[in-house]
């Protein structure tokens, strides 16, 4: 297991390096430069600023320079505020982003699982059809549409919850809800299919033949076996939440990393673009690793290199 982990971590670092290189050069292809936007600056001032941040060097030199610093854990200075490091910006944004993401995932997964299990147990009933119609809409309609609808009806019309900003638990509900709709839809659909499959397995009859109550056979035997394939979609789901949060944080004016990311692209804040991209990539790669480890925990048949397996 530890050998497997070391191998995985090395692969993760290689992946991160490749992502960093790609992003760096793609970013340099973006039109515009960080200091040309402000009309008030004279060309001399722009040149001086470019000089200060090393932007007059050839791109490969800049790359080597950046990577050298990155290895030491230095993400550089943002262009937007004088003297602030990218690391501190990310640190400021991580709280709201992580809270929002985790809330959306927990809520989405729980509701999705309940809907999926209910739909499977009441196969071909109103509950089943209702859940699946919801799942189709939830998967097809992007989260920002739900965000807008929630803001308008619950925030503006009914005035139950605040429309935007991030100032307390009340402010979490609408963005987390908007972000979780896609998760609910995806999990519900998968869970329903997996449960239907599991419920038809022979070992379910074996369990019933032991005299175990229907409820226990469902909770102990069916749900665990149905969860295994669900874990595989958790990885892509984290991606969905991250991309979703980029938009949702902007719509709800939440001071998170997603908002910083979008803003940094708009103003060509190179170190910030690199920093946030690498942060999201690292998060994603790490969640993939967690998913793989979880997979082994839930399914004994694929416990990796455990020595006596097989």
């Amino acid at each position: 297991m530890s050998r497997y982990l070391v191998k995985r971590v090395i692969y993760m670092l290689i992946t991160l390096f490749i992502i960093a290189a790609f992003t760096f050069f793609l970013m340099k292809l973006l039109p515009g430069s960080p200091f040309r936007n402000q009309d008030k600056l004279t060309p001399q001032q722009v040149h001086a600023l470019n000089e200060k941040y090393g932007l007059n060097d050839p791109v490969p030199v800049q790359f080597v320079h950046y990577m050298g610093k990155l290895v030491q854990g230095d993400l550089g200075l943002t262009f937007q505020f004088d003297g602030r490091t990218v690391t501190s910006m990310i640190k400021d944004g991580i709280g709201p982003s992580a809270t929002l993401g985790v809330e959306a995932i927990i809520f989405g997964v729980i509701v999705g699982l309940i809907l999926g299990v209910a739909a499977a147990l009441k196969h071909n009933s109103a509950i089943d059809y209702g859940a699946m119609v919801f799942a189709v809409f939830g998967a097809a309609i992007p989260s920002f549409v739900f965000a807008g609808l929630l803001q308008y009806y619950i925030g503006v019309k009914l005035e139950w919850l605040p429309v935007a900003f991030w100032e307390g638990p009340k402010y979490h509900v609408l963005p987390a809800l908007a972000l979780s709709v896609g998760i609910i839809a995806q999990i519900a659909r998968f869970m329903r299919n997996e449960m239907l499959d599991t419920l038809g397995q022979d070992y379910m009859i074996t369990a019933r033949a032991k005299g175990i109550s229907k409820g226990r056979t469902i909770f102990v035997h069916a749900i665990r076996n149905s969860l295994i394939p669900i874990i595989t979609i958790l990885g892509p789901m984290v991606v969905n939440v991250i991309t979703g949060s980029l938009v949702i944080e902007n719509i709800f004016a939440i001071p998170g990393i997603g908002e910083q990311f979008v803003k940094s692209i708009n103003v060509n804040d190179y170190p910030m673009i690199m920093g946030t991209t690498l942060f999201y990539s690292a998060l994603l790669i790490f969640s993939m690793l967690i998913v793989d480890i979880l997979y082994g925990v839930v399914d004994p048949r694929i416990r990796v290199a455990g020595g006596k397996s097989k």
Binding site: Q201, D202, Y203, I205, T206, A207, A209, K210, V220, H221, R224, N225, I228, V298, D299, P300, R301
Partner: peptide, 16 residues
């Protein structure tokens, strides 16, 4: 109690 035809599928794969 009952025993079934196919022992490959009649045991729960994720339970000891």
């Amino acid at each position: 109690s009952m025993i079934f035809q196919d022992p490959m599928t009649s045991l729960n794969p994720t339970m000891t």
